[in-house]
């Protein structure tokens, strides 16, 4: 039985279709990513899974139960890391973990050692008696993640888990999440960091304007929507656009940006050699592997989403 089954899931705020009829399933133990620009509907989808946002139409089952009619029961096996930390500012760090566990109806005999273990996990043991307001942004984030694990959830919902963290903290977090995944926890992650999605997700969907526009593993999405390599050429901002027609023959697909031209090709070095043979000498050139970011930008566009 899938952990999550969504069919034609829709959430409308007035005129706006925040989530516009999406279908997806998540298998137990899978690490599933929801990618998309701001306002694509990722967080709304997450809140509907937890039953804290009521859907407009469609069906949704979490562990076989509808979160709207069995909210408390569904959430008993969920861990939620919201996009913005909502720690209890009136409680100390360790008390945040204890009280959160109490909300699940768990006894102190279980919670006391569990809270200490999670403080250790989040590397916050020496901050246990600190007020939340005195913690740094990274510490708050780690405490929020520790808090989400207090009930030993079988499904962990992570809404942009590493936003605002420094690289060290991100890598530690990825490592912890990977270990959780190894123990069989299902991870559902929203992010707009493509490296994070590549690190964490077995499978992902790309959302845009409330709809799913692509689905697959990171590698298969790159195969499907991009080439193996990308050649980035800079000719100076005046010449880039003018050279597009002349470069067209050297790549599967070409994209002219104000500062550079991107040539999508199977073999970037070979394309670069061909460009040079044609008598063109770029100011700088770079050959790199295609990434999920290329897929993402192709699917959701380069213009700013407000």
């Amino acid at each position: 039985m899938p952990v999550i089954e969504a069919h034609a899931l829709t959430k409308t705020y007035g005129e706006l279709n925040a989530v516009d009829g999406i279908d997806f399933e998540v298998a137990p133990g899978e690490s599933f990513g929801l990618l998309g620009p701001n306002g694509a509907g990722k967080s709304t989808a997450m809140r509907m899974i937890g039953g804290t946002s009521l859907r407009t139409s469609g069906t949704l089952l979490v562990n076989g139960l509808d979160p709207e009619t069995h909210g408390p029961e569904v959430r008993a096996s969920l861990g939620v890391v919201p996009q913005t930390d909502n720690l209890d500012p009136e409680l100390k760090a360790r008390d945040n973990l204890l009280m959160y566990g109490r909300y699940f109806g768990l006894p102190y005999s279980y919670l006391r050692p569990k809270a200490d273990e999670l403080l250790e996990f989040a590397q916050l043991t020496d901050k246990a008696a600190e007020k939340v307001d005195n913690l740094s942004g990274g510490m708050k984030r780690r405490l929020t993640i520790a808090r989400s694990l207090i009930n030993d959830p079988s499904v962990l919902l992570l809404d942009e888990p590493t936003t605002g963290l420094d690289p060290q903290a991100r890598h530690i977090l990825w490592d912890r999440l990977f270990r959780l995944k190894e123990t069989g926890v299902t991870l559902i992650v929203t992010t707009h960091f493509m490296d994070e999605a590549e690190q964490l997700c077995d499978r992902l969907v790309v959302m845009d304007h409330g709809r799913i526009v692509a689905e697959g593993s990171p590698a298969s999405l790159i195969r499907q929507y991009s080439t193996r390599e990308v050649l980035e050429l800079r000719f100076g901002s005046e010449r880039n656009a003018a050279l597009v027609d002349r470069l067209r023959g050297f790549a599967t697909r070409i994209e002219a940006l104000p500062d550079r031209v991107l040539l999508y090709a199977e073999d970037g070095e070979e394309s670069l050699a061909a460009v040079r043979r044609d008598g063109l000498e770029p100011v700088t050139s770079l050959v790199r592997r295609s990434s999920l970011e290329d897929v993402f930008l192709r699917l959701t566009g380069r213009s700013l989403v407000e």
Binding site: G50, R75, L78
Partner: peptide, 14 residues
């Protein structure tokens, strides 16, 4: 603003 209930309602509490 404090989003306190948002946190509470992510648990078993209704």
């Amino acid at each position: 603003f404090a989003k306190l209930y948002q946190g509470m309602l992510a648990t078993s509490l209704g």
